[in-house]
Design a protein around this nucleic acid. Sequence first.
RNA 1: GGCGCCAUAGCCAAGUGGUAAGGCAGGGGUCUGCAAAACCCUUAUUCCCCGGUUCGAAUCCGGGUGGCGCCUCCA
Length: 464
Amino acid sequence: MALQFKNTLTGKKEEFTPIEPGMVRMYTCGPTVYNYAHIGNFRTFMFEDLLRRYLLYKGYKVTQVMNITDIDDKIIRNSQKQGKKLREFTDPYTDAFFEDLDTLGIERAEIYPRATEHIDEMVAMIKTLADRGLAYEIDGNYYFKISAFNDYGKLAKLDLASLKPGARVASDEYEKESVSDFALWKAWDEKDGEIFWETEIGKGRPGWHLECSAMSMKYLGEHFDIHTGGVDNVFPHHENEIAQSEGCTGHQFVNYWLHAEHLIVEGKKMSKSLGNYFNLRDLMDKGYSGMAVRYVLLATHYRQQLNFTFHGLDAAAKALERYNDFIRNLESYDGGESDGSAGEIVETARSRFEEQLDDDLNISGALGAVFDLIRDINRLKADGKLSADEAESALELIRRFDTVLGFEMQQAGIEEEIEELIRQRTEARKNKDFATADKIRDELLSRGIVLEDTPQGVIWKRKV
RNA sequence: GGCGCCAUAGCCAAGUGGUAAGGCAGGGGUCUGCAAAACCCUUAUUCCCCGGUUCGAAUCCGGGUGGCGCCUCCA
């Protein structure tokens, strides 16, 4: 089966065909760096990581762009509150974002453009839109004229006439021809203080939607393959991006729009007032590993609302342990006598894994194939019916899967002191001094080291 | 009011017409000095409810019930 994605634009599952064979250009909406990103944000970034990794697995060359939004109302407000310059305020959160990506094992995109470094491109777009009659200016503010763009609403399936002015619209402080029109450029205001750019179209700052249009087209071209984000971005953000971009170029902007559902916590919408709002650092402080969080965020299909629970986090850690033990145990396996069944087990796992992921990234189905492989190979191993060569091919396969899953944990070395304790315990066991041996084992466990006595000797691992 | 999504075991979660994947948790065993890891057996006669279509429905259709999202800068 060929790779298929559910395309928000068409509402259908469609076969994926890149514009340029063998090459995928994708834009993934990134963080607004006014705070630490929360686990809901990372759910979306994790989905994008899966998408990226699977495209690479399939042999595509991938160019992924993720923007860093480092200018918006909240950033201005909070930076001023703290008496900091823009970059002084946003840089630490930008750094923290990249640290968090590493903690979660999320691969880096090729390009991370900052909005504040692309003002010229945005201004150029506004001028083009104005020339084409799609933008107008009032008191130094520039707005996109929705009524002049026929396709408006095609992504979100919104009928313009049905857009009712609501409370949020009424709160808009700017004058506009139509309440539905959105800001491309905001003229400088006293409240903006030192935050402004002097440009051909005046003194001010860009609207939010424009940066993604300007930066995606700069790095990926006027027409590219995939654009992703959270479901809340469908409207208005992505709808507006289409309007701006296609308004400028006069042709199709993006072929496939993919959107990740939201994460909820213990069955409820995550919110600060409910006390169920978590960023990654909160979870690390509670003693959970980045990998366990990775597993939880990855394991639910991206179009399914993900119910994040602490019980689920514990379950994820156990599942990861099984996965990593499988790899570790295969590595130290001496081999037995083949009964000839391993080859089919490996091939079945490979085809099921790919078939599931080809189907709109059905990760739950793919994980089913992975854990079936683990059970089936472990069974052969337990029965002594797995040869060393077969063990090697199973190991190769799971490592191949791991280029997509990213679950394998590197075992950092252990300190000399711990090695010494392990030696002492081995000695004690040799002398049948089990009381001492068990005491050392408990001591190591409390320090996060788990020991296993095998026929080949003692091995250790870190607790997940 | 408009558009859309969801409901499968104690928990998480696949499956969209051919007789219920997988993970976690629970119970019983094998192995082990004891563990750990691993393996075996076991845990949904049934998929929110009521009708209908069909040889056959968790899957399709109609009607309910319950939960959720978006409707102008929230991933």
